[in-house]
Design a protein around this nucleic acid. Structure first.
Length: 935
RNA sequence: GCCCUGGUGGUGGAAUUGGUAGACACGCAGGACUUAAAAUCCUGUUCGCCGCAACGCGAGUGCGGGUUCAAUUCCCGCCUGGGGCACCA
């Protein structure tokens, strides 16, 4: 009886589906475990071998936990709203819902092929009205809330209104505009429109005018994390700054909690750092400098007179205040018009025009040092020194106050600026400054700094801050790089906002009116004046509904909650249910969502928790990032201007040079390793290369190779369906794990999958012989056989718990090799082995489990229990402890302490007992002294 | 430039974190079975040296130092692949 994986896998997949083997109940006495994959965007390209890597890992872990007695929630769904489907609709006129549904079908078939244990009854699609009803509902909760900085949590806006009525906003500084201040009387006197405008400055989801990343080609606004190097992440189109009415999430209010929360969850160092950098918290001070300028139209008059308002700068290094040699304000800064002297006016205007002409892309690509003097001066409050005020594009309007103090000896950018414009440099750090490079140290003793002379910079920060505060011209200030998240898109294929505009005020729809359905449109093209396609629908506009839609990340910010209670039509997720499932115990996905999805979903969770809808404020307890599987492309080399293709191996000699050829990618699927299947190549692409002359090396055509991203256009994708067809799902699953650590990126290489396939066949032969049929028996296992088994039990448990799936697969191979060597076909051993194998290779395990005559499914078998006695008895390993560690051999340092010597003596005694007089195998000597004993 | 992260045979990778480096697998070489192939099994496979052979000797985890009885593992200085951030004052 042969291992017929095709029949076995088909049989059990059908069987599991029929019996509902993967249905998960929300009620159980078992402890819960929630294992989640980042759900995919169903693109038209389907899955390649890189996608299932994380899915297989999570599937193994889920099945393992189930065997270990947990009630495991392991769902899957689709992030179905998004730009590509809409682009496709614009180009081909196919409704996004249609193309998305088709893509989902393909995904589902591919996923089913691999034998995952998802509970498909819990599938979610973010584009379904039953789902986005609740996305809209959560949006309304955010809209109706504000962040109370006193209690440090989100609270209802009605509470804020009652506060305003009692005390005005003295207790609640306005996060949208700190200059807004009013008393309770003033509040009551405001007209309704004014009140609404003020409240908008507090809401967690709010609408306002702002500089946004506008992408003309995509006809929409993009979030900061969707813009890479000044172009759109999708499509690579140019992005410009534009002032538009937009919806935002006030994520900045959560900056500190998003930072603190990182300490309570297990994210990789790299991930924590990416989020920390993105939030970009910095501690510093805002300092007011008096301004001297003059506004006389007489160009020969250079008399300086004090200006009304001060120049406020933000700095993290107030200790360097005596090293300030110039000020720089952003070109967009409001003061420029007021302080620029007539003599400099023309130059300044020319400079601002130049800056405006430069796109973000140019600004980032070529960082030229540029700037212009305003003619005005700031005054150092401590020594009265006059400091020239410049404008330059290297200072960003959106961060801090949009103005900085330039300290060339301590800041590299300031140093370059000073050098470029020949501004004299004041050295306040003595020998720490070498005259050519700025030194950002905090350890130097200050010089040329009057009352700070001789003080370590680190300590001077506090001294200066105290003094500034005392003088009333400065205060400590915390700044963040993170901005509020742009939350509207001028697109069709997204959730409509449940908002009506009445007399310029945003009115939320009644929750009973949800979902606000996405209407049908005739055209997916943008509407007028930067509005979305919804603005083309007369009925929509007549109802005064918001014409923007929500961005892709709206639906994905909370989907992990919907899986818990996917069919509930009364609430997004019953509180009892979310209390039971609680946090995601293991979340697996790529690093590409580090600052997008993972930050937004953390914020939504915190807000929902604050408002009492769920009981935890971090969604993901542990995050595992799978590595990317790269493609390994193959090339043939056509000699320029000919139809001759040279084997790559011939470039070593002098006959052919690689420079004289054009490398052409060929489909990796007809290259075996690096050897080209010539017949397949000639038939490729309808015989495009049928007449190619191949210059062979020893009868073979050897291709060149290069590792790059896996993509269809590079002909380096490998479809999992093909591998499953050829080797079976179990082999495919185990091979993906065997490739290496899950968190490591590596190029795909199909060579080697045979080894895993051989392992499964070898396992099969422990049960069945091709001729004799079943060979397993009921004999009692020897202690040697039990030793092999129990070593494996321990190893598989350890490795699965620490996500070291590749070494676990190796452990299975070792076990089967050893059992084959021992000719062990005993049920007692084999049965335990296949239970452990179930998470890795579920189909063959189930088949063998049944073959052994067991009732029920192996999915719920009792996991074998490791017993140390089988492993330790008369084995290489023994329970001798030195410094609390069990070792497989003993190491004795001759200069060990008396206690250690005693311990070693004891150890030796134990060793003698264990080996029962057998001679020690090996003594290890170093420099003539015995230090190590192996038995 | 800054911050992570890795560098181990022909290849993917092990080494349970300081204890016999190279597990397991691929590939390769040789052999068995076969008319032949596939499949399967066995032997060898870090490099170098000696030998008929077993045994043996020397070197070896990117490079150079250091700590230790003992270093792939810890420390210092370089070289290098991958990822992230990049005028955030």
């Amino acid at each position: 009886m042969e291992y017929n994986f095709r029949a076995i896998e088909k049989k059990w997949q059908t069987q599991w589906k029929a019996s509902g083997a993967y249905k998960v109940s929300n009620q159980s006495d078992k402890p819960k475990c929630y294992v989640l994959d980042m759900f995919p965007y169903p693109s038209g390209a389907g899955l390649h071998v890189g996608h299932p890597l994380g899915y297989i890992a999570s599937d193994i872990y889920s099945r393992y936990k189930r065997l270990k007695g947990f009630n495991v929630l392991h769902p899957m769904g689709y992030d179905a709203f998004g730009l590509p489907a809409e682009q496709y609709a614009i180009e081909h006129g196919v409704h996004p819902a249609v193309s998305t549904a088709k893509n989902i079908d393909t995904f589902r078939k591919q996923l089913d092929n691999i034998g995952f244990c998802y509970d498909w009854d819990r599938e979610v699609r973010t584009s379904e009205p039953g789902y986005y009803k609740w996305t809209q509902w959560i949006f309304l909760q955010l809209f109706k809330s504000f962040y109370n900085r006193v209690t440090q949590k989100a609270e209802s806006i009605t509470h804020l209104i009652s506060e305003f009525e009692k005390k005005g906003n003295a207790m609640h500084e306005c996060p949208g505009d700190a200059s807004i201040k009013f008393s309770s009387e003033e509040w009551k006197a405001y007209a309704e429109k004014e009140k609404q405008d003020i409240l908008m400055n507090y809401r967690l989801a709010f609408c306002g005018y702002g500089e946004v990343n506008w992408c003309e080609a995509l006809g929409t606004v993009l979030a900061n994390d969707e813009v890479v190097n000044g172009v759109s992440e999708r499509g690579g189109y140019p992005v410009v700054k534009k002032k538009l009415r937009q919806w935002y999430l006030r994520i900045t209010e959560y900056a500190d909690r998003l930072l603190d929360g990182l300490k309570t969850i297990e994210f990789s160092e790299a991930m924590q750092e990416m989020q920390t950098n993105w939030i970009g918290k910095s501690f510093g001070a805002e300092i007011d400098f008096a301004i001297l300028s003059h506004q006389s139209s007489d160009l020969s008059n250079h008399t300086l007179t004090p200006h009304d308002s001060p120049l406020t700068v933000y700095t993290t290094r107030p200790d360097t205040i005596f090293g300030v040699d110039f000020m720089v304000v952003a070109p967009e800064h409001a003061l420029i018009g007021q302080i620029t002297t007539p003599a400099q006016k023309q130059a300044v205007e020319a400079y601002i025009t130049y800056v405006k002409s430069r796109s973000d892309r140019e600004r980032q690509a070529e960082k030229k040092i540029s700037g212009c003097f305003t003619g005005a001066y700031a005054v150092n409050p401590f020594n009265g020194k006059q400091i020239p005020i410049w404008i330059s594009e290297y200072v960003l309007a959106g961060y801090g106050t949009g103005a900085i103090m330039g300290v060339p000896c301590g800041d590299e950018r300031d140093h370059k600026f000073a050098n470029h414009f020949n501004i004299p440099i004041t050295n306040i750090i003595g020998t720490y400054y070498n005259g050519t490079d700025a030194n950002p140290t905090k350890d130097a003793l200050l010089e040329n700094s009057e009352f700070l002379n001789g003080i370590v910079m680190r300590d001077a920060i506090g001294i200066v801050n105290a003094k500034l505060e005392e003088m009333g011209i400065g205060k400590k200030k915390v700044n963040y790089k993170m901005r509020d998240a742009a939350f509207s898109r001028q697109r069709y294929w997204g959730e409509p906002f449940p908002i009506q505009w009445k007399k310029g005020a945003a009115i939320p729809l009644n929750e009973k009116e949800l979902p606000l359905l996405l209407p049908e449109v005739d055209s997916y093209s943008p509407g007028p004046e930067g509005e979305g396609p919804l603005a083309n629908i007369p009925e929509w506009v007549a109802r005064e509904l918001e014409t923007n839609t929500m961005p892709g990340y709206a639906g994905s910010s909370w989907y992990f909650l919907r899986y818990m209670d996917p069919h509930n039509n009364e609430t997004f997720c019953d509180r009892k249910v979310s209390d039971y499932w609680n946090q995601v115990d293991l979340y697996i996905g790529g690093t590409e969502h580090a600052v997008g999805h993972l930050l937004y979903s953390r914020m939504w969770t915190k807000a929902l928790c604050d408002l009492g809808h769920i009981g935890f404020d971090e969604p993901f307890r542990k995050l595992l990032n799978q590595g990317m599987i790269q493609g390994s492309s193959r090339f043939v080399y056509r000699v320029k201007g000919t139809n001759n293709f040279v084997s790559h191996s011939l470039f070593d000699g002098n006959a052919y040079k690689i420079e004289d050829t054009d490398p052409i990618r060929v489909d990796v699927n007809f290259v075996d390793g690096v050897e080209l299947d010539i017949a397949a190549f000639k038939q490729w692409r309808n015989g495009e290369y049928a007449n190619a002359e191949l210059i062979l090396d020893d009868g073979k055509y050897i291709c060149g190779s290069e590792v790059e991203k896996m993509s269809k256009s590079k002909f380096n994708t490998v479809n999992p369906d093909d591998l499953v067809e050829k080797f079976g799902a179990d082999t495919f699953r185990m091979y993906e794990m065997f490739l290496g650590p899950v968190d490591q990126s590596k190029p795909w290489d199909t060579k080697g999958i045979e080894g895993v396939h051989r392992f499964l066949k070898k396992l099969w032969r422990l049960f069945f012989d091709d001729l004799k049929g079943k060979v397993w028996n009921e004999e009692k296992a020897t202690s040697e056989e039990l030793k092999v088994l129990h070593r494996t039990i321990r190893k598989i448990e350890e490795d699965t718990e620490r996500f070291s799936f590749n070494t676990a697969v190796s452990a299975f191979m070792i076990c089967v090799n050893e059992l084959a060597d021992l000719k062990c076909n005993k049920r007692e051993v084999l049965q335990s082995l296949i239970i452990m194998l179930t998470p890795y290779a579920p189909h063959i395990s189930e088949e063998l489990w049944t073959a052994l005559g067991n009732a029920g499914s192996v999915l719920d078998a009792a996991y074998p229990v490791f017993e140390a006695k089988y492993v330790t008895e008369s084995s290489k390993e023994y329970p001798v402890s030195i410094n609390g560690k069990v070792r497989t051999n003993i190491n004795i340092a001759l200069d060990a302490s008396p206690e250690q010597v005693q311990e070693i003596a004891l150890a030796n005694e134990l060793v003698q007992k264990w080996i029962e007089g057998k001679p020690l195998k090996k003594f290890i000597f170093v420099k003539g002294k015995m230090i190590n004993v192996v038995i």
